[in-house]
């Protein structure tokens, strides 16, 4: 049985179509990532799946329960960590955790093993008010509270937004451990590099999934050869690449530009062309695409950019 299944979900806010006929399934035990920028519709989707918002049309089931008809059953078997910190700021760390355990008819002791790894890091501050915690500690408390009733499916809405790279890595290590305990995890993020840690990822923009696949397969499906291009004058290189007639796309990627070439183009010619434009230290070499390359390729014709 699928842990989550959504069929033709649509939701509009006035003229804005937040979700457009979205259908997908998440298998039990899967770590499923929903990757997309702000405004893609991620939070709307999470709120529908957690029974907090009604879709305009379409249906969804979580752990076999309909999110509208059986919303009470859904709420018992899910854990939800919203993007905005939503615990009681004027209760202590321990009081928050105790509260959530009690609401779900359980005790901290009963499921302590599930949260031990995470909760131990904040336990020294258990008498501190939640509102007085640092960002990283709030995040760990919120995750502990979402887990304390042993949910079957965990929904995490942008848990790492605004979090520095080191803390992000730690958070994902926690998720991988939870997955090993058999919990299904649906997690959204605007950081494309986190996609590779998921079993499958859905790339989302404008209320639709641009593609759903394993990160590996997604990258293998990239239809073009991708070239990394560098020179000693990186700022100037961008303009020169765009001026080259056979360059189909070029995007900056850290220390290099990622370039695709049209029919007539080849790397030797590109290198020669750049050298005639006065570039030194020119390097052009094939590289495997990242999830971000795939996202940009798929979103190319749907963007709202200028």
């Amino acid at each position: 049985m699928a842990a989550v299944s959504a069929t033709h979900l649509s939701k509009s806010y006035g003229k804005v179509q937040a979700l457009q006929d979205l259908s997908f399934t998440v298998e039990a035990g899967e770590l499923y990532g929903i990757i997309g920028p702000d405004g893609a519709g991620k939070t709307t989707l999470f709120r529908i799946l957690t029974s907090l918002l009604l879709a305009d049309s379409g249906t969804a089931e979580v752990a076999g329960h309909d999110v509208v008809k059986d919303y009470r059953a859904v709420r018992n078997v899910i854990g939800y960590m919203p993007g905005k910190f939503s615990l009681y700021q004027d209760l202590t760390v321990e009081e928050n955790l105790h509260f959530f355990a009690t609401v779900f008819n359980t005790t901290i002791e009963e499921n302590y093993h599930l949260i031990a790894d995470i909760y131990k890091q904040i336990e020294p501050f258990r008498k501190r008010l939640a509102g007085k915690l640092s960002g990283g500690m709030k995040q760990k408390l919120a995750l502990s509270c979402a887990l304390i009733h042993k949910p079957e499916v965990l929904f995490l809405d942008e848990p790492t937004t605004g979090v520095d790279p080191v803390s992000r890595k730690e958070f994902w290590n926690m998720l991988l451990k939870l997955k090993r305990q058999g919990i299904t995890i649906v997690v959204s993020t605007p950081y494309m590099d986190e996609a590779t840690l998921c079993d499958r990822v859905a790339l989302m923009q404008h209320g639709k999934f641009l593609g759903v696949d394993t990160p590996k397969h997604l990258m293998e499906q990239y239809p073009e050869t991708l070239w990394a291009v560098r020179s000693d004058g990186m700022h100037r290189l961008l303009g020169d690449l765009k001026a080259y007639p056979h360059v189909r796309s070029s995007f900056s990627f850290g220390a290099a530009y990622h370039v695709t070439l049209g029919g007539e183009g080849n790397p030797e010619e590109l290198k020669a062309y750049l050298e005639t434009r006065g570039h030194t230290g020119v390097e052009v070499y094939a590289i495997p695409p990242s999830v971000e390359d795939c996202f940009m390729l798929l979103s190319k014709n749907t963007g709202d950019e200028r």
Binding site: G36, P37, D38, A40, T161, G162, P190, M192, Q205, H235, L238, F251, S252, E292, F295, M296, S299, K300, G303, E305
Partner: peptide
């Protein structure tokens, strides 16, 4: 201060062109 948080990948790069 974190000017590009949450922005889609294409716009994020266009933003850097404005910075340049």
């Amino acid at each position: 201060d974190e000017p590009t948080g949450g922005v889609d990948p294409v716009t994020r790069r266009q933003f850097w062109e404005l910075i340049y």
